[in-house]
Structures are given as C-alpha cells and as structure tokens.
C-alpha cells in the first residue's frame, strides 16, 4: 500500500471518527426561562442593574421588584440626574398638573438657573410633604426606571 493511500485511508477514518464523536457527544444541557429583577440604567447602550436573584416563579420575582422599588423610593430623590420628560408622559406640563392636584407649589426656573431645579425642590420640601403626597408623585412617574421583572435563560 502506498504512503499516499494510507494517508487517505487515515483521513477518512478520522473523518468517520469525528462524525461518530459528534453523534455521541453529551446532550446539550437543558435551558429554561427564568425571571430576574433589574432596573434600566441610562446609558449609550441598553444597560440594566446586575441581577441579584433569579426566580423560577414570576410572581416571586414581582414581589422582589416591589420590595426593591419601595426601598428605592425611600432612599432616592426621583429628580436626581433626571428630567420630567424622561420620567412622566407629558413631561413638565404633566408633572406640574400632578403637583397642583396635590396642592403643592411646583418649582419655577430662577433667573440664574439653566433649568427648573426639581431635585433641589424635592430636597427642600421633603419634610413638608406628607407620605401620601410623596407616594402620589412617585406613582405619577410612569416613565421612571423602576425595578421590573425581566426574563433570562438558565442552563
């Protein structure tokens, strides 16, 4: 048998072996859809907070999201690094209407300010508002990036 022929035979065998190996390879691990809780972060690309916990059950994930949102409301100024257009449908006009409905005086733009200082208003008036008024403002922020249930794959 020539060297060339041997080589060919060898190649064929390898190819056959490869095929056999592929057929016998371990089954792909099963993947399943699971739920997590994340908050969108303003960024050039779609970015979310790191997931803390992965849930099998969507309603358990929703309960966790509710807990996180309650905490977020307790420790955060909703207007920090944020503007009405990004927080509420209808922007400033809609937010002013919410304030008026709650009998709160919304901030106005001062001469030396580039824009209305909503963040400063919240800080100055935090203790002047009732819990219900603060909650109502948060509830009105229908475009705010709250924690939400998202899906992912678990392998």
């Amino acid at each position: 048998m020539s060297r060339k022929a041997t080589s060919k035979k060898s190649t064929k065998t390898t190819a056959k072996k490869k095929t056999t190996t592929k057929t016998k390879s371990a089954p792909k691990p099963k993947s399943k859809t699971v739920y997590t809780v994340q908050r969108e972060i303003s960024s050039e690309f779609p970015t979310h907070t790191e997931p803390e916990r992965i849930f099998m059950d969507k309603s358990a994930a929703q309960r966790f999201a509710d807990e996180r949102n309650k905490e977020l409301r307790a420790v955060t100024n909703p207007f920090r690094d944020n503007w009405p257009d990004y927080m509420i449908k209808g922007g400033t006009k809609a937010l002013v209407a919410v304030f008026k409905k709650l009998k709160l005086t919304p901030p106005t733009k001062k001469k030396d300010e580039y824009e209305v200082d909503w963040e400063g208003w919240w800080d100055r008036n935090y203790f002047n508002m009732t819990d219900a008024q603060r909650d109502a403002i948060w509830n009105a922020l229908n475009k705010y990036n709250f924690y939400k249930v998202t899906t992912t794959t678990l392998e």
């Binding site: 997590t36 970015t47 979310h48 907070t49 790191e50 992912t152 794959t153 678990l154 392998e155």
Partner: peptide, 11 residues
C-alpha cells in the same frame, strides 16, 4: 459603565 450591563445567560 460603573454598574450593571447586559445579562447574557445564567448557569
């Protein structure tokens, strides 16, 4: 980015 990112998959 100082936090988070894009979640690919969990193992």
């Amino acid at each position: 980015n100082s936090e988070g990112g894009h979640l690919v998959k969990v193992y």
